[in-house]
């Protein structure tokens, strides 16, 4: 057996392939297609304090090589997650990371407390949410606001703390440093890129249009994600989990090259629901075929 493990100290992965938040639910559907225990870890759908119904209207828009979504964080809420989903994940021995989101700092702090109480091994914090108190400016776009948020979460939560950065900023380096200084254990990048889908239908001179403003994901955002991961690694020492448009082995190697320790698969799970497990196999085969000793050796060579 080839060693594909990634050891973050506080958190251990059998292999570097994770499934991204919002694309794998709470992991109770994909087990129809594959053995989810063979995935490095699954990241849950973003969970908020209260259950959320999500956005009205059109939620999906396919673009060339991508997808715009405006789901609006529809989720069952932390209480239902703890009562209905947590036991199952544990019973099946699924390695998971809880993704959390909030409207106020207090929301996040409470979610951190609950995560600590429930001994959840790792949480990923979605900071691409509008901060209601700061005029709905996103938490993850202002370094001061992000530093305060992460510090407060850190106080309450002792497990493996991952902050998921948004690419919709000009100063990703400053934000990465804010996260590091506030005591987080890891950065994941990137969340979706702001985008707009425009659909036009004509009936003579009458135009029927539909605009879908949301987050762009999928193959088309990979170059943005690679650039962000590289820029973060240039300034921060924290380990980085890379994501954005990954759909095959080569994409994954590109992220390792720019410094990612592990990767997440998002939108590609929809296109190819067996991808996460298949990629782990392909990676092991590739390492053997090329003659690397293990994943660590491969990463070293990629980063030389």
């Amino acid at each position: 057996m080839i060693d594909l493990s990634v050891d973050f100290g506080k958190f251990y992965l059998e292999n570097p392939i994770l499934t991204a938040s919002g694309t794998y639910g709470y992991c109770d559907e994909f087990d129809a297609f594959l053995d989810v225990r063979n995935i490095g870890a699954i990241v849950t759908k973003g969970i908020t304090l209260e259950e959320r119904p999500g956005n009205e209207g059109k939620r999906l828009f396919e673009t060339s090589s991508g997808l715009i979504n405006r789901i609006g964080l529809e989720n069952i809420g932390i209480e239902a997650f703890v009562n209905r989903k947590l036991a199952r994940l544990r019973k099946l021995g699924i390695n998971f990371i809880l993704n959390i989101a909030g409207k106020t700092e207090e929301d996040y702090v409470q979610l951190a407390e609950i995560s600590q109480r429930e001994e959840i091994p790792a949480i990923e914090v979605n900071v691409s949410c509008p901060n209601v108190k700061a005029g709905c400016l996103e938490f993850g776009t202002d370094e001061k606001c992000l530093y305060d948020l992460v510090s407060r979460i850190r106080e309450k939560y002792k497990g493996f703390l991952i902050i998921k950065l948004t690419p919709n900023v000009t100063n990703i380096e400053d934000l990465a440093l804010a996260v590091q200084n506030a005591g987080a254990d890891c950065i994941s990048a990137i969340n979706t890129v702001k985008g707009l889908g425009v659909e036009l239908n004509f009936s003579g001179t009458k135009v029927v249009k539909s605009l879908v403003q949301g987050g762009l994901s999928g193959k088309c955002i990979k170059p943005v994600a690679l650039s962000m991961v590289k820029r973060i690694k240039e300034v921060a020492n924290l380990p980085v989990i890379g994501l954005g448009g990954i759909s095959n082995l080569n994409d994954m190697l590109e992220f390792f090259t720019v410094g990612a320790e592990a990767i997440q698969i998002g939108t590609e799970n929809f296109t190819n629901p067996s991808i996460a497990v298949n990629l782990a196999k392909e990676l092991a085969e590739f390492i053997v075929k090329q003659g690397f000793r293990d994943l660590k050796h491969l990463k070293e060579e990629l980063r030389k």
Partner: peptide, 14 residues
């Protein structure tokens, strides 16, 4: 409805 996952996880088709 336009669908992404087709299995109830993405909440795109509600």
């Amino acid at each position: 409805k336009v669908m992404a996952c087709g299995i109830g996880v993405c909440r795109g088709c509600v």
